[in-house]
Each structure stands twice: as structure tokens, then as C-alpha cells.
């Protein structure tokens, strides 16, 4: 793999975080932004990516859309970490019946396709992006737990673990510091990036589908921007500003590419 890819990947991954910060700081009013006199105008100095068919600035919508997935995907990661890491680590470390039960519970969740699980949660509890994030986090936790379980179990009886115990290190410190933080933080980071990318794709897909029927029954609904509903909102307009649907599509593709490159470089460094 070329040496530039990890760098390019990280840069692409940092891009949504950056625009998230910009968006939170700027607080641009994307809801009160309608101005039909500039409907579907192309890029200009005032509107770098032009406007959509209601005359809303595309660049600001693109930037503000980061709020609909960056925060929630961090929430999804937090949920997956909060469930997956302790479950995987403790069942790998302790073994025995408790571990079997934990793993059985997680395998049960994992046996449902993630997308179906998320849709079920939406159907049962209503459609909010935080809820989708929560569901995605829960749905992803078994994958993370299983990966950690396998590694901890194989590390459990390594010499340095015994040596650490002989030195009087407490089990907790060996498990959390040496096994998880020192030896597996890259693995965990890779899974977080994977979940981040998965959530972006999920949110974009749901918001796109929701945007198609115009009523936003899935994902993020207009007028709140999402890269998915931006595409859905524009693509049937006969004389649309091309950038209004192209830009969010490109942004999604680039961030996903960044996640792939970064994730792969983490695997290769570990191997």
C-alpha cells in the first residue's frame, strides 16, 4: 500500500469533524435560509456551491449536515465501546459460564442483520437520529466484543500477563492498561472508524429514502440537512443546480474512502 494513503485517509476522516466544529461554531440558520429568488443558481462568489431549488445555500447545508451524523456517530461509538469492550474483555479474561452467557446474548443480537435491527428500533420507538445511533451502537457491539474476546483470550495466558501478575500488578490494570490500551487500542480505533463509516452510510441511506417520499419518514427529515436528504431533495428537479446533489454524494464517498484507507492502514500496521 502506498505511503500516502494513511495520511490521505486520515485527512478525509478529519474533514467531517472539522466541518462539524465549523458548523457548531457558525450556527448558520439553514432553516430560515429559503430564498426562491436564487433558486437553483450555480456556484458563485457568494454561494460557492450555488443554491438548491428553494434557494438555500448548498455549502452551508453541506457543512451543517455534519451535525446530523458526526455527533450521533460518536454516540454510536460510545455505545458500542461501552457494551462491546467490557463484554469482550471480561468474557475473554474471566472465561467460564458468565462468558458463555455474555457471548450467547451478543451472538443473538448479531444474528439479526444490523440494518433490520435499526429499522425495527425505528418502527418501535420512532424515528430520531439519536435513536438510530443508539441502535447502530448496540448492533455493532457484538462485532467489537467478539474481536476483543478473541484477542484477550489469546493474550490471557501470555508470559507477560503472568509476569505482570507476579510483579503484583492487579488484574484490572493488566486487562485495561496492558491488554486493551497498550496492545489493542488500534484494533478498537479501527472498529470505531468502521462504525463511524457504517453510521454515516446508514444515516445517509435512511435520510435519502426518507427524503424520496418527501415526508422524511426515515432518518433526518428536511428542513434539517443531511447528505442523504440533500440528494433526494434535488435529484428529480429538471433544472437543478448540479452541485446541490453532487456535492453531498461526493462528500459521502470521500469520507467513506477515508475510513477505508485509514482502517486498512491500522490493520496493516498491526499485522
Amino acid at each position: 500500500m502506498s505511503a500516502w494513503r494513511p495520511w490521505a485517509g486520515s485527512a478525509l476522516l478529519l474533514f467531517p469533524l472539522l466541518i462539524w466544529v465549523v458548523s457548531l461554531g457558525a450556527g448558520y440558520d439553514v432553516i430560515g435560509d429559503v430564498d426562491v429568488s436564487r433558486a437553483s443558481v450555480g456556484p458563485s462568489a457568494a454561494h460557492w456551491l450555488g443554491c438548491d431549488h428553494l434557494g438555500r445555500d448548498v455549502l452551508w447545508r453541506l457543512v451543517t449536515a455534519s451535525e446530523s451524523f458526526v455527533g450521533p456517530s460518536l454516540l454510536a461509538c460510545a455505545v458500542a465501546l461501552a457494551i462491546g469492550v467490557p463484554a469482550g474483555a471480561l468474557s475473554g479474561w474471566l472465561g467460564g459460564r458468565a462468558a458463555s452467557l455474555t457471548r450467547f446474548a451478543l451472538t443473538t443480537i448479531a444474528s439479526l442483520p444490523r440494518f433490520v435491527l435499526v429499522l425495527l428500533v425505528c418502527a418501535a420507538f420512532g424515528n430520531s437520529v439519536q435513536l438510530i445511533a443508539l441502535a447502530a451502537g448496540v448492533a455493532y457491539a457484538p462485532t467489537l466484543a467478539e474481536a476483543i474476546y478473541a484477542r484477550i483470550q489469546s493474550f490471557r495466558h501470555r508470559g507477560f500477563v503472568l509476569a505482570g501478575q507476579a510483579h503484583g500488578l492487579r488484574s484490572g490494570r493488566i486487562l485495561w492498561l496492558h491488554l486493551l490500551w497498550v496492545n489493542h487500542r488500534r484494533l478498537i480505533l479501527r472498529h470505531c472508524i468502521q462504525l463511524f463509516a457504517y453510521f454515516l452510510l446508514l444515516e445517509t441511506t435512511l435520510s435519502y429514502i426518507g427524503g424520496l417520499d418527501g415526508a422524511g419518514s426515515f432518518g433526518v427529515a428536511q428542513p434539517d440537512p443531511s447528505w442523504g436528504n440533500m440528494i433526494a431533495f434535488e435529484w428529480r428537479e429538471p433544472e437543478a443546480n448540479l452541485w446541490a446533489s453532487l456535492a453531498p454524494g461526493l462528500a459521502t464517498a470521500l469520507v467513506l474512502l477515508g475510513a477505508t484507507w485509514t482502517g486498512r492502514s491500522l490493520v496493516e500496521e498491526q499485522a
Binding site: 507477560f160 509476569a163 510483579h167 503484583g168 492487579r170 496492558h178 497498550v182
Partner: peptide, 24 residues
């Protein structure tokens, strides 16, 4: 065993490299 491991009894295992945390 907790107060014994370390302050009283130390252990230098057979393969010292394996006894070191590989990424620290």
C-alpha cells in the same frame, strides 16, 4: 497472594522477551 506477589516474591520467567508487554 496479593501482598506476596511483587514485594516478597519476584519471578523472572523462562523466556524474558515473552514476559514483556510487546507494545510498551
Amino acid at each position: 497472594f496479593a501482598p506476596i506477589r511483587g514485594p516478597l516474591l519476584g519471578w523472572l520467567p523462562q523466556n524474558p522477551r515473552a514476559a514483556l508487554d510487546p507494545l510498551r
